[in-house]
Design a binder for these strands. Structure first.
Length: 806
DNA sequence: ACTTCACGAGTTTTT
DNA sequence: CTCGTGAAGT
């Protein structure tokens, strides 16, 4: 790239962009030329570096905004980046591509649909849609759903796609029965996706890579255009995304002399917590090998937390093997000690957390919105909700079942999706008999068979059914199908006449009787379903309004329109669907300032540690730090998974700005059964002098979680539940009877059930087995046992293990 | 074709 | 315990 203004930058001229940065940050902003990896520790000003770098490119290096592509993982991150760049450079920011991997790919694929010989109005299938389609495929291939569960197949196929392997390659590489069958499913699944004019999330990436690799001229076109590529959260990229980035920037000049684009990636290997979804930490670890001449800059100064908190985080993460050393530091002082608490059970733990929040709020030390409570798994939120409700503590749970995953929302959207893409078989079959309209499994199967035999789409087969051209279809079903087709045709007319999305949605809810059915129901769940549908209508309404204002602005600014090809018209039905497919983010996270005026002290935020990544709070409660909970059971024997759990702990700790609490419970009910849990190994990794233990485990010389008679007496005088009989009943039922027994048995079992490799055991559930390996000692001892037909299982040997040594 | 019951499985999840 | 799926009954 050369411009008329290709002059060396004058020092001092861009002082406003640079002078409040530390030397490492400044180097990252000013760096020019070879690929750059910015290793950005938690709270080290990563977003600031990215946005400043973009502003600097524009101001000091005469880069045109249209030459910049900035890629993130979440819409939230993309929006934040766009906003912050906008603050620095104004409206010029609009010409940049700042988007998620997925929306960037959708945009490219819609533009280049012709090249790939597909239609630009393809549907986007999310995990649930693809699982449904895989269920259909597996059923058609007569696979035993026990041995080949759709979930597992879906995960396997997703992994293959993340590795850019197609069905044929997967088949040739298959090493066992499962992989062979999965490859078969993959092939058929892919065929059906194409037939439905649909792509799943993984396809979006994989097909874009294919686009670039099979059509070098297309790759060159975009490489010529995007001279600067920036990637956020690089540690979370999977292999397909890594390849995409490589293709985008290029590694050597093209035939027509286009040099590789300038690449800047930002990430932190210690915050890689999505390996289970295909993210591969190697991408960041091997960056310098992947991109020769690459430069690496380390950001270690932290602007978020106290030194106490950082020291704890450093100590924990340092235990991970094969890690590039990095030590966060701050100039802002030690601050408060970390507060530790060992609770008798999860209710006690929640009561402690609630009490502390209350005290902090009363003393004015913190507002509710300053506080976050983290847990490992969503089901742990329940105890907190129970007690928060009882105490009138305002809170909000983030995550769990998200808005766009709710059944009623998906049903409504499925109608819209069929209207936008009649070939979308998964959506069509979803709504075929929802609400019930007399088209049962039998009728559906008959139509599906007809479609298959005549090589018709399911939609076309339905029309054949109405015309009486489908054999074996009884007249009753035929009438019902005719009614359905008529209904859809009517809705189609609405869409064709340019009706607003929200009004189409209203028509769907009315004409199908969906709303009426919910209104008539006396199930309280259905009331909330109605609310969700109303919310969806509101979302649609706002979407159109927003699109209108954007269109006006664009008309005013006479913006370039070269990106418009294949891209849905703003505000249209396809645009709306694209948005809701790629934004699964409606349960927004409460703003740290609280929503309302000065009097409003906001709400406490409850979420999983995964959800917390990227956020920060003055006060953080890390709960449930028990071996088996956090680290999770499944990670206990797997070093790689344990390392990921430790990174998760690192993420949790580094969210805290001023005060950090860490707690665990001696006994926690899991699936109705009380479990005695030893303390998390991560707790032991926090230097003792950093922690002020408010309450310790009853000591009995047996180490963490040791059981003593005194532990039993403390159960009688728990805090928080004294006068609420219903709650106390719930809380104590498990403890006085089962739990007490379970606890004591667990204690004995810890001593009694000593297993060695080769021992034969008999388990109540899994039957006979042989010990394959053992790990840990005392209360955290585990054993991997091969139960033959029941598979290999890793079990904790503490608690009332329903197993005996033979 | 729809309802009811039993069973089993059950982390995390940016898109 | 709790939800979603699969087989039997009406």
């Amino acid at each position: 790239m050369s411009t008329l203004f290709d002059l060396p930058s004058e020092p001092g001229k861009y002082a406003d962009l640079l002078d409040d940065l530390n030397p490492a940050q400044r180097a990252a902003v000013e760096h020019s030329g070879p690929p750059l990896l910015v290793v950005a520790g938690a709270g080290s000003g990563k977003t600031r570096v990215l946005t400043r770098r973009i502003a600097y490119l524009l101001a000091a290096r005469d880069v045109h905004p249209g030459q910049i592509m900035a890629i993130t993982f979440t819409n939230k991150a993309a929006a934040e980046m766009r906003e912050r760049v906008g603050e620095l450079v104004g409206r010029r920011a609009n010409a940049m591509w700042v988007s998620t991997f997925h929306s960037m790919c959708v945009r490219l694929l819609r533009r280049e649909a012709k090249t790939l010989e597909m239609s630009s109005n393809f549907s986007i299938y999310d995990a649930d849609d693809s699982r449904r389609l895989i269920t259909l495929v597996a059923r058609d291939l007569d696979l035993d759903p026990k041995r080949y569960p759709a979930r597992t197949l879906a995960a396997h196929i997703s992994n293959l796609k993340n590795e850019l392997l197609d069905a044929e390659t997967a088949a040739s590489k298959a090493a066992n029965d499962f992989e062979r069958r999965a490859a078969e499913v993959y092939g058929e699944y892919q065929r059906r996706l194409t037939q439905a004019n649909a792509m799943d999330f993984d396809d979006l990436i994989m097909r874009t890579v294919e686009l670039f690799q099979v059509f070098p001229d297309v790759a060159e076109h975009y490489r010529r255009r995007f001279r600067h590529v920036l990637v956020d959260e690089y540690q979370d990229t999977n292999h397909a995304q890594y390849t995409l980035v490589r293709e985008l920037v290029g590694t050597k000049p093209t035939g027509s002399g286009v040099e590789p684009s300038e690449l800047c990636v930002v990430g932190d290997a210690d915050q890689s917590i999505y390996a289970f979804r295909g993210a591969t930490i190697r991408n960041i670890e091997e960056f310098e090998r992947d991109f020769p001449n690459a430069r690496t800059i380390l950001l270690e100064q932290n602007y978020r937390s106290t030194q106490t908190i950082l020291s704890a985080a450093n100590a924990v993460i340092a235990r991970n093997p094969n890690r590039r050393d990095k030590r966060l530091w701050t100039s802002s002082g030690d601050g408060e000690k970390i507060v530790g608490y060992v609770a008798d059970n999860e209710h006690d733990e929640a009561a402690f957390v609630a009490g502390e929040i209350d005290a902090l709020a009363d003393s004015g030390e913190a507002k509710y919105s300053d506080v976050a409570v983290f847990y490992r798994t969503n089901n742990q939120s329940r105890v907190f909700e129970e007690i928060f409700i009882r105490l009138g503590l305002p809170y909000r749970v983030v995550g769990g079942v998200r808005f766009y995953e709710r059944r009623e929302v998906r049903d409504a959207l499925a109608y819209l999706r069929v209207l936008a893409n009649p070939e979308d078989t998964v959506s069509l079959r979803r709504i075929l008999n929802v609400p019930k309209r007399g088209i049962g499994d039998r009728a559906e199967a008959v139509v599906a068979t007809h479609a298959e035999r005549e090589r018709l789409s399911f939609a076309a087969a339905l029309r054949d059914a109405v015309a009486g051209k489908v054999p074996l279809l009884n007249p009753r079903s035929q009438r019902c199908i005719a009614g359905f087709v008529e209904l859809m045709d009517g809705l189609h007319e609405l869409v064709d006449s340019g009706t607003e999305v929200a009004d189409v949605l209203e028509a769907v809810l009315e004409r199908t009787g969906y709303r009426a059915e919910l209104e008539e129901s006396d199930d309280p769940q259905d009331a909330s379903r109605l609310e969700n549908l109303d919310e969806l209508v509101t979302v649609a309404r706002e979407f159109t309004e927003f699109a209108d204002t954007v269109l006006e602005e664009q008309a005013e600014a006479e913006q370039e329109v070269d990106d418009a090809a294949g891209v849905p018209e703003p505000g249209s039905l396809p645009a709306f669907l694209e948005r809701v497919s790629l934004v699964a983010d409606a349960d927004s996270i409460p703003s740290p300032d609280g929503e309302g005026g000065e009097e409003d002290s906001g709400v406490v935020t409850l979420m999983t540690v995964h959800t917390a990544k990227g956020l920060e709070y003055p006060v953080v409660f890390c709960t449930g730090w028990e071996d088996g909970i956090f680290p999770h059971m499944r990670a206990l024997g797997e070093p790689a998974e344990l390392a990921e759990e430790r990174r998760l702990a690192y993420v949790a700790i580094t969210r805290a700005r001023k005060r950090l609490y860490v707690s665990r419970a001696l006994v926690r009910s899991a699936w109705g059964q009380p479990m005695a849990n030893p303390g998390s190994r991560f707790l032991d990794e926090v230097p003792a002098e950093l922690v002020d233990w408010r309450r310790l485990a009853p000591s009995n010389g047996s180490g963490a979680g040791g059981g003593s008679p005194r532990a039993a007496t403390t159960w009688g005088r728990r805090t928080g539940f004294g006068d609420d009989s219903a709650q106390a009943g719930v809380a104590s039922r498990g403890m006085r009877t089962t739990s007490f027994k379970g606890w004591k048995d667990g204690w004995k079992d810890t001593v009694a059930l000593k297993l060695d490799v080769g021992d034969r055991v008999s388990h109540d559930k899994y039957g006979l087995g042989t010990v394959v390996s053992t790990d840990g000692a005392g209360p955290r001892a585990t054993a991997t046992i091969d139960f033959g037909a029941s598979g290999k299982v890793r079990l904790m040997l503490i608690g009332s293990v329903p197993m005996v040594k033979l």
